[in-house]
């Protein structure tokens, strides 16, 4: 059974693409055949984070318009077995996507025995975001610990309830997961950021993971390497924990919620 998971947030810049890349890589690393789709048509980013930007020939829009085959369009990851990337088009816009076209692509992926389809949603609540979440079985709602991000997440949760295929077909609702990214326990303590408890209280959905704010995340993005592959970093370990919970180990305790005991200078310079 193929599972389709959308990574969404409403707000931009909270870490959707970083999360999509790491979740897809993490699942593939555990042996699941996984594809990650960039739905951000016109603002192609996922290929950069996955480090395959030079290998993009065809893209999602070509596939939707039946101008290329699945085999031609999917980019096989060089590091991880079972991992494929379906890039977005950089020259087109979101109007190039249709539900029927996406449905055809999803059907082909399911017939190719993928275990997981990870949909990297664009920001906003417009057509692109709605297309990305339409076919979702589960949703990872990526949220930063600040009020505007939490409010936008609340909004996107409402859209998941009313505009996903599952809601329209009156099926079991989309399973929702909360992933808090860029969490900085020190700033939470100082009252500059919302705490995990505040966010869970506001959004009222189960917590999948807490990814600590870390310079490693940006370093990895620049390198074109999903941060989950950096086993030494806290962010990488936190994503690994999230994969465990996604695969059913829901009682796994959350880490990186306390401020590390560091000196004043080392805190300043990270």
């Amino acid at each position: 059974m193929t599972k389709t998971i959308v990574v969404t947030s409403g707000k931009g810049g909270v870490g959707k693409t970083t999360t999509s890349a790491s979740i897809a890589t993490g699942l593939a690393k555990r042996g699941y055949k996984t594809v990650v789709i960039d739905f951000d048509v016109g603002l192609r980013n996922l290929d950069l984070v996955m480090g395959c930007e030079r290998r993009v020939v065809y893209d999602l829009v070509n596939l939707v318009n039946q101008e290329s085959s699945l085999h031609q369009t999917l980019i096989k990851d060089k590091r991880i077995e079972n991992l494929y990337i379906l890039p977005a088009s950089q020259t087109r816009d979101k109007d190039a996507l249709t539900i029927e076209g996406i449905a055809r692509v999803m059907h082909k992926l399911k017939k190719s025995d993928f275990d997981y389809i990870i949909c990297d949603s664009p920001a906003g609540i417009e057509k692109g975001a709605k297309m990305a979440l339409y076919f979702a079985d589960e949703a990872i709602v990526t949220t930063n610990p600040e009020v505007s991000s939490v409010r936008d997440s609340d909004r996107i949760l409402g859209i998941l309830q009313s505009e996903s295929k599952r809601s329209k077909m009156n099926e079991e609702p989309v399973k929702e997961h909360l992933l808090i990214t860029r969490y900085n326990p020190g700033r939470v303590k100082d009252g500059q950021m919302l705490s995990v408890d505040d966010i869970v209280d506001l959004l009222a959905i189960p917590l999948l993971g807490i990814i600590p704010e870390s310079p490693t995340v940006l370093d990895c993005s620049n390198e074109g390497k999903p941060v989950i592959l950096d086993d030494d970093s806290e962010a990488g370990q936190a994503y690994s924990d999230a994969i465990d919970r996604l695969l059913g180990e829901i009682t796994k305790p959350h880490r990186f919620m306390e401020a590390p005991k560091k000196g004043f200078l080392s805190r300043l310079f990270g």
């Binding site: 609340d154 909004r155 949760l157 859209i159 309830q161 009222a204």
Partner: peptide, 8 residues
């Protein structure tokens, strides 16, 4: 019997 979300 479910949360009423922003925008709903």
């Amino acid at each position: 019997n479910k949360p009423v979300r922003s925008g709903q």
